[in-house]
């Protein structure tokens, strides 16, 4: 049985050594905070592993990745609050790959209403 424990331990260490990936962390995003002004083309969705919305800035449609649904809702961002066509200002960390118009979103402002999705990152 000793071989099994040694093999298992080696496998566990290999798995633990796998470097952190982008998705749930911020490793795939820029350090710098980017500010965008755009119009909403798809309102907040609280479905899936994290909330999302889409805005149009110039000719580009940006995918905004928000916090997990429950946290996004706690920040006050409920589905349907910001209508399609509304003008918004958003701040966040854009994808390191500038070919992707994707941003992890820290803050959204619509009119006088501010939503602090990740206050600790502002």
């Amino acid at each position: 049985m000793a071989w099994l424990f040694r093999t298992g331990l080696a496998a566990a260490l290999m798995v633990a050594a796998v470097p952190a990936f982008a998705h749930h962390g911020w490793g795939g995003q820029e350090e710098a905070v980017t500010t965008l002004n755009g119009t909403v083309v798809q309102g907040v969705s609280l479905a899936g592993p994290h909330a999302t919305m889409k805005i149009k800035v110039g000719a580009d449609v940006w995918d905004l990745t928000l916090a997990p649904p429950a946290r996004t809702e706690r920040a006050g961002l409920k589905e349907g609050l910001i209508p399609v066509g509304a003008t918004v200002t958003v701040r966040g960390n854009r994808n390191l790959d500038h070919a992707k118009h994707e941003m992890k979103t820290i803050y959204i402002k619509q009119g006088a209403t501010e939503y602090h999705v990740y206050p600790d990152r502002e």
């Binding site: 479905a47 899936g48 997990p68 429950a70």
Partner: peptide, 14 residues
């Protein structure tokens, strides 16, 4: 239907 189930649904299904 799944999208209508609320903010915890994805976590629970996961």
């Amino acid at each position: 239907f799944v999208r209508s189930l609320g903010v915890w649904s994805y976590g629970v299904i996961n």
